[in-house]
Simulated scan of single mutants.
Amino acid sequence: MELIEEENLLYKAGDTGIFLGKVEENAFHQHYALQLTIGIDEAFEMESEDGVVLSKSLLIHPQVSHRLDSKRQKVLVILLNPASTLGHFLAKHMTSAPIEEFTEEWVDYLRMFVQDLSKNEINEKTFLSACINSMAEFNSRCLAAKHDIDKRVLASLQYLDRHTREVISLKEMAEEMCLSESRFQHLFKEETGISYRRMQLWKRLLASFDYVQSSKTLTEVAHQSGFSDSSHYSKTFKESFGFSPSEVLASSHLLID
């Protein structure tokens, strides 16, 4: 990632990620999260297997290979857990295509928050609080929608959240959920759109951000978050974000909640 003019802002709160900045030379990647990308002033370029789209606001479904070029403009990227109430509602009830224009009024509020931050009318903490609160308000629309993800899958996701530094085998998790390995694996993929193994890697990848500020090297971060070594961690990171962890962390101001 090339740092342009100013430092990027990277924020993690639980399983929600927020990035504000400018992006170039992004490699093709895919991840479990539902991705909302918003151009603040101008359109950005999003490329997928279906071609290139120029847009000011796109919602990208999980496991869709893509690459982002912000065209030297600032973009706001929000990564949401598709198994959350908000993520499930957006993916199942508000969109149908893998990559789709998203023009809800919520987007306008998010742009306004960025503009207030750029004018120094609010600080970073207030900006991030405004983004998170706006999600909560938009989330109220989700409560009336049928949120029908299987409870055993939800329980397994919560179990992974509690054990991010461990490798929980498929056999162990299936037994925890009182299912056969094959049944659990099929149910998990059907409900989340990703294999159990890839989900566990994604959960550990998110958890790794919590250790960045207290660790001196990527090897320490990798070991703290359950990866075998820094090479495995860096490979997984780039496959998920299109950049190496060193590129992202060198150009971003990281905040953890």
Score class of each variant (00 low, 15 high):
Leu79His: 14
Arg72Glu: 14
Phe28Thr: 13
Val75Trp: 03
His88Val: 09
Ala27Met: 08
Asp41Met: 00
Ser48Phe: 05
Ala83Asn: 14
Leu79Ile: 03
Lys56His: 10
Ser70Val: 15
Ile60Phe: 04
Ala91His: 10
Pro62Asn: 11
Val77Glu: 03
Phe19Leu: 06
Arg72Asn: 13
Ser70Asp: 06
Val52Cys: 00
Gly51Asp: 08
Ile18Val: 15
Ser55Pro: 14
Ser70Tyr: 08
Phe44Leu: 15
Leu20Pro: 00
Phe44Tyr: 14
Glu24His: 15
Met94Ile: 15
Ser48Arg: 01
Ile38Phe: 04
Leu90His: 01
Thr85Met: 15
His93Ile: 01
Asp50Gly: 01
Ser70Gln: 07
Lys56Asp: 10
Glu25Phe: 09
Leu79Glu: 12
Leu68Phe: 13
Gln63Ala: 06
Val52Pro: 02
Val23Asn: 12
Phe44Lys: 06
Leu80Tyr: 04
Leu86Gly: 06
Leu59Ala: 02
Pro62Tyr: 10
Val53Cys: 00
Met46Val: 14
Ser70Lys: 09
Thr16Phe: 06
Leu59Pro: 11
His29Thr: 15
His61Val: 00
Tyr32Trp: 15
Leu20Asp: 02
Ile38Asn: 02
Ala27Thr: 11
Asp15Met: 10
Leu59Thr: 00
Lys74His: 05
Ser57Leu: 05
Arg72Gly: 09
Ala33Leu: 11
Ile38Asp: 00
Lys22Leu: 04
Val23Arg: 14
Leu80Pro: 12
Lys71Asp: 09
Met46Tyr: 08
Val64Glu: 09
His93Gln: 13
Asp69Ser: 07
Gln35Ser: 07
His61Ser: 10
Ile78Gly: 05
Glu42Asp: 14
Leu79Met: 11
Val75Lys: 00
Asp69Ala: 00
His61Arg: 04
Ser65Asp: 05
Glu24Ala: 14
Val75Ala: 03
Glu24Ile: 08
Ser96Arg: 13
Ile18Ala: 05
Leu76His: 10
Val23His: 07
Met94Phe: 12
Ser55His: 12
Val52Met: 07
Tyr32Met: 12
Arg67Ile: 09
Gln73Met: 03
Thr37Glu: 00
Phe89Thr: 12
Leu20Thr: 00
Ala91Asp: 14
Ile18His: 11
Lys56Leu: 05
Leu59Glu: 05
Glu25Asn: 15
Thr37Gln: 01
Gly39Glu: 00
Ser65Leu: 01
Ser55Thr: 11
Phe19Gln: 01
Ser84Asp: 15
Glu24Leu: 13
Leu86Asp: 08
Phe89Ile: 10
Asn81Cys: 06
Phe44His: 11
Val75Glu: 02
Leu76Thr: 11
Leu76Tyr: 09
Ser57Arg: 01
Glu49Phe: 05
Met94Gln: 11
His66Trp: 04
Val64Gly: 05
Asn26Thr: 02
Gly14Ala: 04
Ile60Asp: 02
Thr85Ile: 15
Glu49Arg: 06
Phe19Ile: 07
Leu36Met: 07
Pro82Gln: 13
Leu59Ile: 10
Met46Cys: 07
Asp15Arg: 11
His93Asp: 10
Leu34Glu: 02
Asn26Ala: 06
Phe19Thr: 02
His88Gln: 08
Ala43Val: 00
Gly17Trp: 03
Glu47Ala: 12
Pro62Lys: 12
Gly39Gln: 04
Ile60Gln: 06
Gly87Ala: 11
Gln63Val: 00
His66Lys: 12
Leu58Cys: 06
Asn81Arg: 09
His66Glu: 04
Leu90Thr: 01
Ala83Pro: 08
Asn81Phe: 09
Glu47Met: 09
